[in-house]
Every structure is written in structure tokens, then in C-alpha cells.
Lab assay of single mutants.
Amino acid sequence: CHSECLGNCSQPDDPTKCVACRNFYLDGRCVETCPPPYYHFQDWRCVNFSFCQDLHHKCKNSRRQGCHQYVIHNNKCIPECPSGYTMNSSNLLCTPCLGPCPKVCHLLEGEKTIDSVTSAQELRGCTVINGSLIINIRGGNNLAAELEANLGLIEEISGYLKIRRSYALVSLSFFRKLRLIRGETLEIGNYSFYALDNQNLRQLWDWSKHNLTITQGKLFFHYNPKLCLSEIHKMEEVSGTKGRQERNDIALKTNGDQASCENELLKFSYIRTSFDKILLRWEPYWPPDFRDLLGFMLFYKEAPYQNVTEFDGQDACGSNSWTVVDIDPPLRSNDPKSQNHPGWLMRGLKPWTQYAIFVKTLVTFSDERRTYGAKSDIIYVQTDATNPSVPLDPISVSNSSSQIILKWKPPSDPNGNITHYLVFWERQAEDSELFELDYCLKGLKLPSRTWSPPFESEDSQKHNQSEYEDSAGECCSCPKTDSQILKELEESSFRKTFEDYLHNVVFVPRKT
């Protein structure tokens, strides 16, 4: 048989008469490798580009789960590009990614509803959504962080984005990388972005840091009482949809009607710091009717980097990364020049730590249904340095008659930039024990000054392991946590139920 035959053949030295091919099969003959313009397919066939392209389009058009959109890589027609490569849609070739590779997620039936953290986790790592997304989240724990972890990498949506009755959302900033909504599939009414009845939605994105392009379709905003109209108009300008909307697409009466839409800028007039305090004062603000001013709200939190936005980490279910302080308005003076500047002394802060701070007014709604208010920009203030805590785990070892090696770990709280350490030492008198000992005694162990690591005695271990207080009263049991108490109650309830079950099964009433 021919060298490319495997198993047997019907005619000697003829690659077209093989029972099976050793390498690849091409047009009725066995070959060692697939010549151009053919590609290896499933490690035994040679196919042309049209064959591989037909497989790709067949799966793409069917949208069946589990099928493969075949691509070409290293002269092979394979189910998908290997790690580190992405497909070129024009020629199906796998090309190296520039940075992290995109991950295209194809949605069944063309859309997916995100109504819980669990459903959001199914899209973790996706960068391109081939379909439409509907966000409908009523509640949950730590929602802002969970949504950002699972949806934060999405850069492109081919269909539309719909935010509907998501009472738990305060902001859409968890879509931190969303840059493009194509609108290839539109919501009824030709809408590519749809926001309806979101009672706590206050911000779409921080438009000073976020760009969003909507290729096709219109915007729809109705019944978002805490979303200011200025935020919607800003989205029109940034996304390129200005002029597409009709009169009733953006409701003037049901958007922002319960919001404090600040239209003035508060400026800080005085800032002073110490290692654990920050004193702030800002310019006074009074609405047209000074009785509408209820006070100020001061927001602050630790910020290692200057990239904080107002609604980071917030949701309507209680999660809030900001510390909020309510401040009463100052006494009002008739003389504008003698107006008191409101302020606040922030206490209990960490030394040498940068804080993000902003302040906003708290006002009631005027009778004319106009909203007044003022808010400052987010500023960054760093507390002063102070003395560091003591170095940890000092170790001293003498390696000769004239040297001592000293080692330690950095302090747990540096409280500033540590530039150097101060080492103090003092000579001590020799131990009298060394002169009084009889060095001729056998088995004498000389006193040693070398360091030995501390260890816990058996008594201390027994005390720590004991669940009861000892007789001397030195140790006591740790208080039980809520989960331990709940577990004990469940076990007790189970024992009672099981005992009742045994009584009912074992003891049967005697027939009379």
C-alpha cells in the first residue's frame, strides 16, 4: 500500500485506493498535508475557505447554543480562536489581540433580562453583547459592586439597553466600559436606550469621564423622579442622539420631579488639616426662599486615587461607600458681607490618608415646582503625618564578641513616609551569675543571650482551647457569634421535631 494509506488498500502504491488515510483526505486521495488554498479540518480532512465560511455563517444565523462559528488559524479551520487571539470578521482569520481579548457573548432569543446578581454573573467577562440587555433589578445585597464585577467589562451592545423598574439602582456607572450601543435591534418605538419607572436612579454616568455613542435609535425617559433633566440632556449631547427624540420621548413632568437638581456650584473657602482632623468651610448658599434650606450634607471617604465619582458603590438597598454628615444651616444675616460661612470639623480620621470630599445642599421643593440647590466639586484632601507606631517583631542576635545583629519589621501604621529608623542602645553591667558559677561542674549549661522565638506554653494553649472559665478566673470563653447562636437554635429545633416524629412513629394507638 501507499505510504499515506492506513489499515489496508485495494490497489498497491495508489493513494486513492486506501481504506483510511494516515494524515489527511483531499478529493478522494490521501495526502501528507493540505496544500494551499485548503485548510486542515478536524485533523483528517482538507477543506477550502468557502466550506469553513459556510459553517461560520450557519452557526451565526441559527443562534443555536453550542454550535461553533468556525475560524481560520495556522492553516486550520477550527471552532474558535485560541487564547490571546480574536477573529477578523472580513476573512475569519485569528489575529493577536492588542491588550485583553474581546469576548463576544451571543444571547438566546436576542435579549437577556438581568433581574438578579445570579443572572448578571452569566455575563461575567463579556466585552461584546450580541443582542439586547434588559435591566430589571428590584433589590439585593452589595448590588453596585456585584454588577460592576460582572457587567463592568461590557464595551458594546449590538441591540438596545433597557432599564425598567430597577428600584435598587442609583447610577449606571457599573457599566464602566460601555462605549457603544449599535441599535441594530430596537425596542418598540425605535428606541435604543429605554429608561422607565426607576424610582431611585439619580445618575446615568459621570459624563466628564465617560463617552457613549448610540449609532441608531432614540432615547426614552419616563417616570424617573430623581433623575434630573440636565442629566438626560447631557446624554443626548454626548451620545449623538440630540435631535432624534420626539416631543413625548422625554417626559418633562415625570423626570426629576422629586430630585434636588443642583444648578449652582458650592466653593470651599477654608481648608485646614491635622493628622486626624480636617476643618472645612464653604461659601454660604440661600435659595430664593431661605426657609427652603434644610441644611447641608457632607460626604467623605478614603480615596487612594483621584478618580472618585459621587455615586460609586451606591445602591438604593443601603450600600453606600460614603460617610454622610448632616449639618444645620448657619444663622442668616441681613448683611451679605457678614454672612457666616458654614463648615464642619471632621474628626477621627487616619493620618497621612487622602480623602475625597464634597458637600451639597438639602432643600425642600418650592411652590413653583422649581428645584434649587448647590453642590461642590469633589475635592481631595490629605491629612498630615504623625509619629508612626512601633516597629514590629524586633530580633537581636550576637554573632561574635563585638557585634549584635538587630532586625525588625516595619510598623503596622507608618502614618507617613518613613525615611529612617533611630536605634538606641545602652551598655549593661555583666551578670554576677557568670562569676559565681563553678565551671568545672559536669552538665553545666552556660547562660545564653542568643534570641529564641517566643512560644506559647501548654497552660496558655489549654486556656485558649477551654470553653469555660478556669477556677483562677484568668480566662473566659469568647462570646458566641450570631451565626453560632442561630445554628444552635436550628439544631435544637431539629432535635425537638425529630423526637416528636419518633414518638408518633414508635407509639401507635392500640386498636379498641
Rank of each mutant, 00 (worst) to 15 (best):
204 L>I: 13
247 R>L: 10
226 K>G: 06
129 I>K: 01
338 S>M: 12
269 S>V: 06
152 G>M: 10
264 E>Q: 05
234 K>W: 07
408 W>P: 15
201 L>T: 06
261 C>R: 03
197 D>T: 08
158 S>P: 00
295 G>H: 03
319 S>D: 13
392 L>D: 14
145 A>M: 15
137 I>A: 14
189 G>L: 12
110 G>K: 13
402 S>C: 06
265 L>S: 10
187 E>L: 10
144 A>F: 15
112 K>P: 04
401 S>N: 14
253 K>Y: 10
198 N>L: 06
271 I>M: 05
153 L>Q: 08
378 I>S: 03
297 M>T: 15
122 E>T: 08
260 S>L: 09
223 Y>R: 08
258 Q>D: 04
241 T>L: 09
217 G>M: 01
254 T>W: 13
258 Q>R: 05
254 T>L: 10
357 I>L: 01
385 A>H: 03
224 N>P: 00
391 P>E: 00
377 D>K: 12
351 P>Y: 13
108 L>N: 04
402 S>V: 03
104 V>Y: 06
113 T>D: 15
251 A>H: 12
265 L>P: 07
207 W>F: 14
383 T>L: 03
258 Q>F: 08
405 I>M: 01
209 K>Y: 12
352 W>N: 10
199 Q>T: 08
117 V>G: 13
270 Y>I: 15
189 G>V: 03
303 A>W: 03
209 K>H: 06
165 R>P: 01
230 S>W: 03
193 F>W: 09
159 G>D: 00
229 L>I: 02
336 P>M: 03
393 D>Q: 15
152 G>T: 08
107 L>F: 05
299 F>M: 07
407 K>M: 11
368 E>Y: 07
223 Y>W: 12
277 K>A: 07
287 P>T: 10
175 F>R: 00
368 E>D: 11
198 N>G: 01
247 R>M: 11
240 G>L: 14
256 G>W: 04
103 K>F: 05
328 D>S: 04
322 W>M: 02
112 K>N: 10
399 N>F: 10
211 N>Y: 11
283 E>Y: 04
167 Y>A: 13
163 I>A: 02
389 S>Y: 08
356 A>I: 08
209 K>D: 04
373 G>D: 03
291 R>T: 01
389 S>C: 15
362 L>H: 14
228 C>Q: 02
158 S>K: 12
253 K>S: 13
379 I>M: 10
256 G>D: 06
127 T>E: 01
151 L>T: 02
199 Q>A: 12
282 W>R: 00
297 M>S: 06
306 Q>N: 02
361 T>F: 15
313 G>Q: 10
333 S>A: 06
369 R>I: 13
267 K>F: 09
400 S>V: 10
263 N>Q: 10
225 P>S: 05
320 N>M: 09
284 P>K: 15
237 E>I: 13
148 E>R: 11
342 P>G: 12
164 R>M: 06
354 Q>N: 08
180 L>A: 08
330 P>K: 14
367 D>A: 05
161 L>W: 00
354 Q>R: 04
342 P>L: 14
211 N>H: 15
309 T>S: 13
221 F>C: 14
171 S>G: 07
131 G>H: 02
117 V>C: 05
359 V>K: 01
200 N>L: 09
110 G>E: 01
213 T>A: 13
259 A>G: 07
376 S>K: 01
387 N>G: 09
253 K>N: 09
199 Q>Y: 04
320 N>R: 08
175 F>C: 03
396 S>L: 02
331 L>N: 11
351 P>W: 05
381 V>L: 10
207 W>P: 05
318 G>P: 06
175 F>G: 01
211 N>S: 08
354 Q>E: 08
261 C>E: 02
191 Y>H: 10
182 R>F: 13
107 L>R: 10
401 S>L: 10
302 E>G: 01
249 D>P: 11
370 R>W: 07
195 A>Q: 06
363 V>H: 04
181 I>A: 00
409 K>W: 10
297 M>F: 03
150 N>V: 02
377 D>M: 13
259 A>T: 13
113 T>H: 14
335 D>E: 14
137 I>S: 04
133 L>I: 04
323 T>F: 12
192 S>C: 06
202 R>V: 05
341 H>C: 06
182 R>S: 13
215 T>R: 12
304 P>V: 04
116 S>P: 02
166 S>H: 04
119 S>V: 08
296 F>N: 02
352 W>E: 01
248 N>I: 04
263 N>H: 08
265 L>T: 07
169 L>A: 14
220 F>L: 09
223 Y>P: 00
152 G>S: 03
212 L>Q: 03
219 L>F: 13
240 G>W: 05
221 F>W: 03
343 G>E: 15
274 S>L: 13
159 G>N: 03
273 T>M: 10
288 P>E: 13
139 G>E: 01
194 Y>T: 11
178 L>R: 00
199 Q>I: 10
201 L>M: 02
224 N>S: 03
186 L>Y: 13
141 N>A: 07
213 T>M: 08
138 R>T: 01
344 W>Q: 13
253 K>C: 02
144 A>S: 11
401 S>P: 12
254 T>F: 09
303 A>N: 04
228 C>A: 05
292 D>Y: 05
135 I>A: 03
372 Y>A: 02
311 F>Y: 14
103 K>S: 10
358 F>Y: 04
217 G>W: 02
329 P>A: 14
220 F>T: 13
243 G>F: 15
108 L>G: 11
126 C>N: 00
142 N>W: 15
213 T>I: 09
